[in-house]
Design a protein around this nucleic acid. Structure first.
Length: 470
DNA sequence: CGCTTTTGACCTGCGC
DNA sequence: GCGCAGGTCAAAAGCG
């Protein structure tokens, strides 16, 4: 009996436990529902705020366009007559993160492009672009590579006709040494990068061979001359010199066009840099490299982290003080046939410029900065696409590749989820990215290749940039 | 041994 | 024409 009673008590206890567990679950469920409701409300609030911000942004954009149009109507000849395109000083602004004062016609042009992209819905990102880009047959691609400049220009004139980054780079392959004589009358493109770097030279994925060193006037630090040895006969050269005023700043000047595929690190940066140039206003959009930049469309617009860079042609966006400060050494062959683009990666991106850039580009996103760190992988669309061969060719550079891939992954993530929030995070990441010497030099190398290519293709009709005038 | 770096000489363009 | 400065060449030296 006692045993039976004990068993009955046990059953009651178990039943009570079950009831208490059920009650606990119900409470938990209730709590979860409550939390969900709160989150939902928060989400609604955020949506409302976002809608308000977008509305304000559109309003401001409209006002800006109105002003731009008024300016444009005031100076109709400047934009309609190609012969008048070259300004007296032939200075072109390619500022990234620097806001140029005064509304120039370059801004008008860039604004046009912005509007074109706005009209496209701004859904074109790295990831979708590579897969969605009009596929060319190998023959088509080859013919494009071998086609004369006129046909290429025709292609470029198509507004919004995107080119995959590697295609842009491959275009430079068509401008080998055989075209060098054609380039002679044309001003050569140079890209100068100022970056803080402790190493003797920046690692940019390319192989360089030092062929000379010289003490330049006005700078006690010797200037080193390097030649690209990735491919035989590659005409690309770079000069490396430390800043006289700040020895921690390495001034690297790239010159020429690679006649070989760039390493993936530089290749990827080409797209980002080009896109950034484009986004920055690509002031020379119609004449000069901006034309090619425009063809990039927003292929990698997500790398707006670059917006913090001071990316301008010498003398165009820099004040007199800045010029003396940014260019403590005499510009190489100032009177020769060079145009110079300066990438100043030493100055931290200003938050204001960041925000202004964000405001200008509504597809800017920094919401999903999912840096995959070491296990980052190139998206399938990439490995199947234009980058595959280069990945193999440069498999021995894992650190650079992973770094590059991280940025690329971020680019895809950010383009995939357009948003307007979290500017501080973008600022932080922008600083992190732009402070990386690998990135800096890769951008420079890529831009050099890119600009040089465009120049060689444009030939005589190409606009000239920078202070180096004939 | 082959490749890279060093370094003095040479070339070239520009200003006076 | 001369001098200067930047840029390049090429032989010698260094390095793995």
């Amino acid at each position: 009996m006692l045993a039976f009673k004990g068993a009955a008590v046990k059953e009651e206890v178990c039943a009570a436990d079950e009831r208490s567990v059920e009650v606990g679950k119900e409470e938990q469920l209730k709590n979860t529902k409550t939390e969900m409701d709160e989150v939902r409300e928060e989400n609604d609030r955020l949506k409302t705020i976002l809608a308000h911000i977008i509305k304000e942004y559109q309003h401001l954009q409209k006002q800006y366009f109105d002003v731009v149009q008024q300016e444009q109507s005031k100076r109709p000849l400047e934009t309609t007559n190609p012969s008048d395109v070259e300004e007296p000083d032939e200075l072109v602004s390619l500022s990234l993160g620097t806001s140029s004062t005064g509304q120039k016609k370059e801004d008008v042009i860039s604004t046009k492009k912005e509007r074109e992209e706005d009209g496209k819905g701004l859904t074109l990102g790295l990831g979708c672009r590579f897969e969605g880009t009009r596929k060319r047959s190998p023959d088509e691609h080859e013919s494009n590579l071998c086609s004369d400049s006129s046909s290429e220009e025709a292609n470029e004139e198509e507004p919004g006709e995107p080119r995959p980054p590697t295609e842009i780079l491959m275009m430079s392959l068509g401008t080998g040494d055989d075209e060098v004589p054609q380039q002679l009358p044309v001003k050569k493109a140079r890209v100068t990068v100022r970056a803080r770097c402790d190493a003797p030279t920046m690692i940019d994925g390319c192989q360089w061979r030092k062929y000379g060193q010289k003490i330049a006037k006005g700078n006690p630090c010797p200037r080193a001359y390097y030649r690209c040895t990735v491919a035989a006969g590659c005409p690309v050269r770079k000069q490396v010199q430390r800043c006289a005023e700040d020895m921690s700043i390495l001034i690297t000047t790239y010159q020429g066009t690679h006649n070989h595929p760039l390493p993936i690190s530089a290749t990827a940066m080409a797209s980002t840099a080009a896109a950034s140039m484009h986004m920055s206003g690509s002031s020379a959009s119609e004449q000069g490299m901006g034309e090619a930049i425009g063809s990039l469309s927003s292929s990698s617009a997500a790398i707006t982290s670059l917006s913090g860079l001071n990316f301008g042609l010498l003398g165009s966006t820099l004040s007199a003080r800045q010029q003396s400060s940014y260019l403590p050494i005499p510009s190489p062959s100032p009177a020769s046939s060079y145009s110079t683009i300066t990438l100043d990666l030493t100055a931290p991106p200003s938050s204001t410029s960041q925000l202004s850039q964000l405001g200008r580009f509504p597809w800017y996103s920094s919401t999903r900065f999912n840096f995959p760190s070491s296990e980052s992988t190139v998206p399938a669309s990439w490995s199947n696409g234009y980058f595959s061969h280069e990945s193999r060719a440069y498999h021995d550079r894992p650190s650079q590749d992973s770094f590059c891939q991280s940025i690329l992954q971020k680019a895809i993530d950010t383009t995939a989820a357009p948003n307007l929030n979290q500017h501080p995070l973008a600022d932080t990441i922008a600083k992190a990215i732009t402070s990386d010497p690998n990135f800096q030099s890769a951008v420079a190398a890529a831009v050099t290749s890119y600009v040089g290519d465009h120049r060689s293709r444009n030939g005589r009709e190409g606009v000239t940039h920078g202070p180096a005038e004939d």
